[in-house]
Write a protein that binds this DNA or RNA. Structure first.
Lengths: 190, 190
DNA sequence: ACCTGAACACCGTTCAAGT
DNA sequence: ACCTGAACACCGTTCAAGT
């Protein structure tokens, strides 16, 4: 039987599926290689190291975020990013570790910056701004903590909140986003 | 020669020092045990697992944050928390992983909530509020990303920003904190 | 009370060699 | 181009046993 054949795309797809099934702590190169019916060392033909593979996974997770659009409401863009991060187990932590290397999040960041920029139709593709970066950092921190908490609860490591934890988290998210983007919902005076 | 003698306090102190020297990825139970001149298994008499040890480290990192004080300005409290996280290498990530388990951050959270609460001197010790939680999540996300970026740069994994990265990060932090706490600087009308 | 010694079940990564 | 096979240098954790 010839060895299995793969490319970067199929490896990333498998890694994303495995991430969602077992979580980031159990997503090892060895486990992934078993899933792909391949020796661990085979993965290093496709990626220089695990970090690079995770950057590819992060990219895929954020592909669900709409293209930059200066007419989009900042709060909607923020929600789209949060939803994308929460779609896969530990998705936020994966994106966070890759974002530190400035990988995988460029599109999401530009989408935020565009929605937050003072509206001027000429420059559709706004550069990063301090506030847009801050909003993105808030979303990443929030979603990462939420997912870690969800895992801790499933393990029983922490007692569940009295109220629905997802609902509580959403309330926290809303109040943060409202504070950070609320002012920009109204076009600033010229 | 009799084996070395330790308690939780001294183990945590050594772990914090080692964290600052080598960073979180290299802070292993085995390396810490070597530093303490003890077998790895000895650590498990003091702590049930690595996570519990890190929660102790997180606690220590946040001890630098002042007691809750409703007369403190929210922005000052936010800065005190950020400074505490940035004092030790990878401090933010350690606190983040413990905060998911609701460990180690209670005091910092109460300090934030107190400063953000509508001022009413009777209830000095404000409970958590959605906005206070959001601000704390922003600070953790921001500081974690900054420290990871600093490490990536020292490794050369990412090209340094043209301008001073610490100054850029501070500007991002300021604009986030201003947006989230600025409105509360003025007492809301009754 | 606090630690040793030995083991179990894992990791990420490298590199020569195969096809 | 893509993978195997074998190795290197590590992990966290458990548990009987020592003092």
């Amino acid at each position: 039987m010839p060895p299995a054949r793969h490319d970067r795309h199929s490896v990333i797809a498998c890694a994303l599926r495995l991430l969602d099934e077992v979580g980031l702590p159990d997503l090892s190169m060895r486990r992934l290689s078993t899933e792909l019916d391949v020796q661990p060392s085979a993965l290093y033909w496709h990626f220089p190291n695990k970090q690079a593979l995770l950057a590819g996974v992060a990219d895929r997770i954020l592909e669900a975020v709409p293209e930059p659009d200066s007419s989009a409401a900042p709060a909607d863009v923020a929600h789209a990013i949060r939803d994308a991060l929460l779609t896969y187990r530990d998705g936020a932590e994966v994106v966070m570790s890759s974002y530190a290397l400035r990988l995988g999040a460029a599109r999401a960041q530009r989408a935020l910056a565009a929605s937050l920029a003072p509206v001027s139709p000429v420059q559709e593709d706004a550069a990063r701004t301090p506030l847009a970066d801050a909003v993105f950092e808030f979303i990443l921190g929030h979603a990462t903590l939420l997912q870690q908490r969800m895992h801790a609860q499933s393990i029983g490591a922490v007692e569940a909140d009295a109220e629905d934890p997802a609902a509580l988290a959403t309330e926290v998210f809303e109040s943060g986003i409202r504070a950070m983007t609320g002012l920009r919902a109204v076009r600033p005076p010229a």
